[in-house]
Structures are given as structure tokens and as C-alpha cells.
Design a protein around this nucleic acid. Structure first.
Lengths: 212, 212
DNA sequence: TAGATTGTTAATCGATTAACAATC
DNA sequence: TAGATTGTTAATCGATTAACAATC
């Protein structure tokens, strides 16, 4: 492994590799070559080797990659073994869907609080978790820091909430609102989910196939 | 505009442009230059002009772009004026969040049916809409075609459901399951949402900043 | 007119792919 | 050993940026 700069595109593919390794492991497969992985994922074997090589030398010539070992390495790189804590800000339907269905715990993320401003939600529960008032965010995060902020609040409030989270020392903001957040001085890391863009970029591709 | 091939990366930015035009219009702004847009979006003015030029000549020298006109053009390209119909397959929390919160109608997408297999859901409603059994999908789509399939069912069922939708003539599949779908003979267009990848690629970027 | 700003071409940059020596 | 397969370097490809003539 050389210390060349790691392309974001490569980092973005790591969770995908992780998912396929999970599937392989579930099938009891113990080793996998870049070629075999390429068949499953649709990426090229070359790209897979290149991507992985940015992070270490995980394979063996003539053998390939050990599935559990590579999975463990990727889990490490993706912070799944750091015991991250996350707060969910905004207790609407989307938050509910996430809290109830997304296996945070399984990937080492502990949800440490759900927040909202609506009087009818504060004091209640969401997916079995107590909902606190967003005003308590700085106070509660000071006592129990979180590395990840999950934003599902209304778009208009996203920027302010992001600042609050940032001030409270959050290292990454998973922005599920339909406002874009721009990384300021580079920290925290921002991931804009933008389901709107996802859906309509598909629609755009549907339209542009007329002449194909 | 030349007939050079349109990069997918450019198509993927169109919904973002559309969103910013909406914001400008809401502020009563009537025209915008690529430079002004670049300030708002964080993209370069050059890239914005390049992207738009793949689809037409929407601007005027010395003036910029007319906000309502450009918005209308983008809506056209993104199929928002086609009156698309969409079916939602899988009536879980995520579907509920979408149906209740995502403004499909506002962007010209009419939800024409929600489907699930669970006996306790079939016959009931989701966000005010009747839930049908997934087995009825081919039959009902034959009578009332839909261009878009929204997949929120369990990952294990994704591939089969995608085939069903494909056979029923769907033109795009918005895959919100955590299985990857691979475009077969190119049709329908597939958009894999992969919230897992989104969250953990952020975590990966959080980790890789240690030495920065 | 002078200033602004487009659409496009050419230059640059970065990411993907191909090739292959190293070696298990 | 022979076959397989890595990690890496170099070549290719594609996407982004810069520059500028055209022109509103």
C-alpha cells in the first residue's frame, strides 16, 4: 500500500464490498478472488483490487481474499468497530422507519437519543425510544457525546441543526432532509442523502433513452 | 447543443439544479447566471453551463437563465410533466414515510397503488391508500400501467419483484431495498438507493480524516 | 457602446482499466 | 512445479475546468 491520496469514489464503494462479503459469509464462502467479486458486483476486478489496495494489502497472491478477514478490515475502516453513537434529530415518519428498520446496532452504531420540537412528540417515544426536545441537544450531547448526527427534521431547520450538531462535536452528519448541507471548514463530514435527486435522476435517465 | 453523448453524472445533477431553481423562484428571483448558481450550489459555473448545454440552449448571453423557463425545461427533462404513474411495492415503515411525506403529486407522479403480501396489511390502507396483494400486481398493472416501480419490500424479494415490475412494463425501478439490482438488458432503468452505503461511506470518510 | 454572460472547444485532471511482475 | 491471483504501474478513458469567441 502506498500513501497516495484515497479517492472518495473508492471510499464510497467500501460499504458495497462489505455487503457482498456479508452475503458470501452467509453462504459459507471462505475466500473470494477479485474476479469472483467482480462477477457478483458488476464492477471490474481491477477496480476492486485498486480500491482495496488504497487501504491495505488484504489479499494473497494465488489465493484471493479471506472473506471474514476482509470483512473485518472493511468494518474497521468504516468505523463499525469504533462504537459510534448517533442522535436522530427529527421524529417524523422517516425517523421512525430508520429507527425501527435500520440495523444500526448490528453495525456498531448506538442510537443515543431522538429529538424533536413538536410538543406532542417530546416526552413520547419513537420506536421504543424516548423523544427529547431539540433544545436539550447541546446539553445532552455535552454529557454524552455522539459522533454521528442523523438529520430528519424539516428542510428549513437543517442548517441551524447542523450547526448545533457541529458545535456539539459531531463528526459526521447524515442529512436526510431535502436541504443540501455544505461542508464548512471540512468538518463535520456531510452526507446529503437527497432521495429527491435519486428518484428524479432515475426519471431523467428514463426519459433520455428514447433514442436508444 | 451538440448531439454528444450525455454523461450520467450530468443527468444526476439536474434534480439538484431543479431544487435550487425552486428556491430562487420562491424568493421571487427571475433570472440567474451560472456564476450565481455556482455560488449557491458549490459547483463551478463552468460545470453548470456544460451540464445544461447537453440538454439545450437555455440561457442568453449577457443575461443568464430565466428562472421559470429553465425550471420548466428541467421539469420536462426529468419527466415531471409526463404524468408518470408509480406503484409502491412493500407497505412497511419506509413506504409509509414516503407515501405520507414525499410530494410525488407535486412533481407529476401519481401513486396508483400500494402492494404488500402480509395478510394483516392487504386490504388495509397505507397513508390513506388501499393496499393490494402483490400477486395482483401483474393483473392491475395490465389494466392501469405504471412507468415507475418503487421497491420497499424485503431485500430477499427484490429481484423477483423487479422482474414482475419489468414484465409489467415499468420503465424505472427506484430500489429502496438493501439488495442491489443490476440493470439487465438496460431496461428498466434502475436506481439503487442504498441508504446503508450512504451512511457508511460517510463513516468511512469520518475515519480517513485522522491525519488531516 | 461597454459589460455581462452564454455555449463550446481545448486543456486538465482524476478515475477506471489493462497489463504484468511478484509470489503464494 | 504450474496455476492462480495479487498489488501496482502505466495507459486509457471520461469528466471537470479554463478559456474565449459570440452576442445579448
Amino acid at each position: 500500500m502506498k500513501k497516495r491520496k484515497i479517492p472518495e469514489a473508492s471510499i464510497r464503494r467500501l460499504p458495497l464490498y462489505y455487503r457482498y462479503l456479508e452475503l458470501l459469509q452467509a453462504d459459507g464462502v471462505e475466500r473470494v478472488s477479485s474476479t469472483a467479486l467482480s462477477l457478483r458486483t458488476g464492477l471490474t476486478a481491477s477496480q476492486i483490487r485498486q480500491d482495496l489496495s488504497y487501504f491495505g494489502e488484504f489479499g494473497r497472491q494465488g489465493y484471493g481474499y479471506d472473506v471474514p478477514a476482509l470483512k473485518r478490515e472493511l468494518a474497521e475502516i468504516l468505523g463499525m468497530r469504533q462504537g459510534y453513537h448517533a442522535v436522530v434529530v427529527g421524529a417524523g415518519r422517516f425517523a421512525e422507519a430508520l429507527v425501527e428498520n435500520f440495523p444500526f446496532q448490528e453495525y456498531g452504531i448506538q442510537l443515543s437519543g431522538v429529538y424533536d420540537t413538536a410538543p406532542e412528540k417530546v416526552g413520547g417515544t419513537l420506536g421504543g425510544r424516548r423523544v427529547y426536545h431539540t433544545d436539550e441537544l447541546p446539553y445532552r450531547l455535552a454529557a454524552h457525546p455522539a459522533e454521528i448526527g442523523i438529520l430528519t427534521a424539516p428542510a428549513e431547520t437543517a442548517k441551524d441543526l447542523a450547526n448545533t450538531l457541529s458545535d456539539a462535536g459531531v463528526k459526521g452528519i447524515w442529512n436526510c432532509t431535502n436541504a443540501d448541507l455544505r461542508p464548512h471548514h471540512g468538518t463535520p463530514v456531510i452526507e446529503n442523502v437527497q432521495l429527491f435527486d435519486s428518484l428524479f435522476s432515475m426519471c431523467g435517465r428514463m426519459g433520455s433513452r428514447e433514442g436508444t
